[in-house]
Amino acid sequence: MKRIFVQPDLCTACKTCEMQCAIEHSQAKNIFASPAETPHAMNRVFVEAAEDRKIPIFCRHCEDAPCVAACISGAMFRDRTTDAVMCDWSRCIGCWTCVMVCPYGVIGRQLELGKAVKCDLCPERESPACVDSCPTKALVFKDVEKFSKEKRAFFAAAIAGG
């Protein structure tokens, strides 16, 4: 299944990913109208700073997702087709137990609606909005095995090349 892989050494912290994520999860889906909407559109991916470094932080859609285990209302579930961990807003009661257990801190609170907000791997798109918009190609949407294989090949070439 596909996941978003982040190559942090290519991140310039331009935050286009954050912006496009919010736009994608808005009604109007464009930069001019979306920012003024209520409930306001929220980004589910984050670029933070620590020690002068730029650190993109994304939901990992964990195999053994703590948020799914902890959810007391059955709102957090794993989508059978995309394998994404999703939040069903019809069941979410805004207890924030998921926020309390997510080790990456990537679950947010939609305050106007009282619902947990998280990355859904953009189910209505071929590939997620953040990946498509990253200007330095720091984000990659790939099958896990494929990504690992490519990384191994790269490493092998580097070793062989000296």
Binding site: T12, A13, C14
Partner: peptide, 10 residues
């Protein structure tokens, strides 16, 4: 403000 945009920084 941090991290500031690398495009601006460069």
């Amino acid at each position: 403000q941090v991290p500031q945009c690398g495009f601006g920084e460069t």
